[in-house]
Nucleic acid binder design. Sequence first.
DNA 1: CGGGATCCTCCCTGATACTG
DNA 2: CAGTATCAGGGAGGATCCCG
Lengths: 124, 124
Amino acid sequence: MSQRNTAVTDQVTDCPLPEVLRLIGDKWCIQILVELGAGPRRFTQLERAIEGVSRRMLTLNLRNLERNGLITRTVYPDAPPSVEYALTPLAEDVREPLELLAQWARRSIPALMAARHAYDARVQ
Amino acid sequence: MSQRNTAVTDQVTDCPLPEVLRLIGDKWCIQILVELGAGPRRFTQLERAIEGVSRRMLTLNLRNLERNGLITRTVYPDAPPSVEYALTPLAEDVREPLELLAQWARRSIPALMAARHAYDARVQ
DNA sequence: CGGGATCCTCCCTGATACTG
DNA sequence: CAGTATCAGGGAGGATCCCG
């Protein structure tokens, strides 16, 4: 999609970001990736760890991540059903860029908040 | 928000990402930042460049970015009104992490697509 | 030109209940 | 335990009109 002819900005930055954010920006996806970054997890473990996610959204996000090859879903045919989720190498690779983004966030959130308060005070 | 006690994953990655994605992940924000990364732009320039954005959403996203201190809005009191948007240093800083994320996306989108097709074929 | 205000419409999401 | 199915509400986003 987005067959544009922007000769100015077609160098590096523009194309893939919106698309990739639609892949991993699904509100819970990041937290799932982070949680799985600490090791494989079962469904209920994720449900408890992320805390705030509904069963439905957790399922949908896991399906989506699995569909895009970012996590694996392994079913162990135990008496109590057991399903384990884990990151794929593809997802491991994305953790570094995300970590850098998180570092920027950590540095900048105070400034962002300050700007926001200033704006809100100015506009009321 | 999210006053959690996850001793395992509270090291680096988890906290700020969802929050920062709510700041710059607003579907058009990234493209605005990218377009402004090539230089200051006027409202209609952005509207034409991004192509697909509605006037309303462009306005809202610009307001939001301005509110968070990521862009500046300069009004030139010309006969035809002229408003120029430009990145702040805060936004310049985020372009590097975003660029790395974009690089990962460029590398990985083929694999992501392949995984998706494989999944769709498997599940139909 | 650069928006603000309004309306309207989905889709996303949460809650709940059911299943293997 | 690990989901699926269904229903209902709210908010994101588009279209349109209007104004400085």
